[in-house]
Every structure is written in C-alpha cells, then in structure tokens.
Design a protein around this nucleic acid. Structure first.
Length: 192
DNA sequence: CTCGGGATGCGT
DNA sequence: CGCATCCCGAGG
C-alpha cells in the first residue's frame, strides 16, 4: 500500500461539524500487531460538548469522558450495551469536550467482518478499550488522507445530513438536530 | 454498595 | 419487539 499521509492535529482542532464533514472519505488505520487494518470513513455523528444532551460529555468530566475534555486528535472509546465498543475522535480545543462518532467504514484492507455500524466497525478493526485515549498522531491508531484513486472521487462526494441514531433520550431539541452525516449512496452506510 | 439504563446489532 | 451483557454514573 502506498504511503498515506496522516491528518495533522490542526485537522481536529476546528469546528466539530466542519470536521465531521471533512472526515468523510478519510482513512482510519489500525496498526494491529503487525497487521495493517484500513477502512474508509463513510458515516459519522457529531457530539457537541457538555451542552449537547445526547453527548456523554453532558455528564461532565468523569473517568469515562475525561479524554473528551482533553486536547483534540485523541480516541474516545466506550463500551455500549455490554458488548460493543464505539470509537470517537476528539475535536476542538482542550476543554471543549466535543467528539465525532465513527459509524461506518468501507473496507479497504484487513477488516474482519461487517463494518457498517459503530459496534461492528470496532470489531472489524480490532479496536477496543485498550486504545482509549490513544493519540491519533501516533503510529498505532490514526487517520490519513485517502490514496489518490479516492482523492479524485472526493469532488463527487455528496454529504447527506440526518438526525442522530438512538438519542431520543436526549429530548426532542437535541434528538432532531441533523448531526449524522454520511456519503450519499455509499453501500456501507448503516441502517439504509 | 445497589441499581437502572445505554451513541448496538441480530433474530423473531 | 426482545434480548444479550456489563460498564458507568447516580444515589444511599
């Protein structure tokens, strides 16, 4: 596989909704004990800090949410329903506590099983709680610009905005906001 | 310490 | 719609 260029810290240190748009089409890479696993990001959701009642950060700074209150470009990983891990990337400046949930990937290399849905994505990429807080500018878990073949396609990407999935508990105001973004017509988007 | 519920996925 | 399965956060 050709050399892929890592996303810089400055990519994550921006408005969360802007990052959520720009992250579509980028590559997620896990260097998993000598096995390079790669997926192309096709679906995400934005969580906008402590005032967003659907966000875990609305619980405040706890042992679980700690990394979201830290600097951008780190991995926020949590266990959901006792059986699936979910991966987020922390955005904006330290203390802002916003993040983007990665919901679906298009398989590129060495993914194991289905990649549509946040839980399956982590399972396929072998991502678990041991990577909690991982610096995405390190050499284990990181994001890159796509290879040239897909870069050309970037101009053709159309982004669809929808309400987030499974956040009705947050109340109508936050549940109805269009903070789920995915690549139009991509077959790997979840819940088609 | 107990207890309730969850940013899911799958089968019915 | 039910359920698997367990961590986390709230409250006593």
């Amino acid at each position: 596989m050709q050399k892929l260029r890592k996303l810089p810290r400055s990519f994550y240190d921006r408005d969360t909704i802007e990052v959520a748009h720009d992250i579509l089409g980028k590559y997620l890479i896990h260097q998993d004990n000598g096995i390079e696993r790669i997926g192309r990001i096709v679906e995400v959701e934005a969580y906008l800090g402590p005032h967003d009642l659907a966000a875990h950060a609305s619980k405040g700074l706890t042992p679980r949410t700690k990394v979201m209150f830290g600097p951008p470009g780190h991995a926020y990983i949590y266990l959901i329903y006792g059986m699936y891990y979910c991966l987020n990337v922390v955005t904006q400046e330290e203390g802002h506590a916003s993040a983007i949930l990665l919901r679906a990937l298009e398989p590129i290399q060495n993914t194991e099983g289905k990649t549509q849905g946040p839980g399956l994505l982590c399972k396929a990429m072998h991502i678990d709680k041991t990577l909690y807080g991982e610096d995405l500018l390190g050499d284990t878990l990181y994001l890159t610009y796509p290879k040239s073949a897909h870069s050309k396609d970037k101009t053709a990407i159309v982004i669809v905005s929808r309400p987030r999935v499974g956040v009705d508990y947050a109340g109508e105001e936050w549940a109805k906001k269009l903070l789920r973004f995915y690549i139009k017509d991509n077959p790997y988007v979840s819940k088609k």
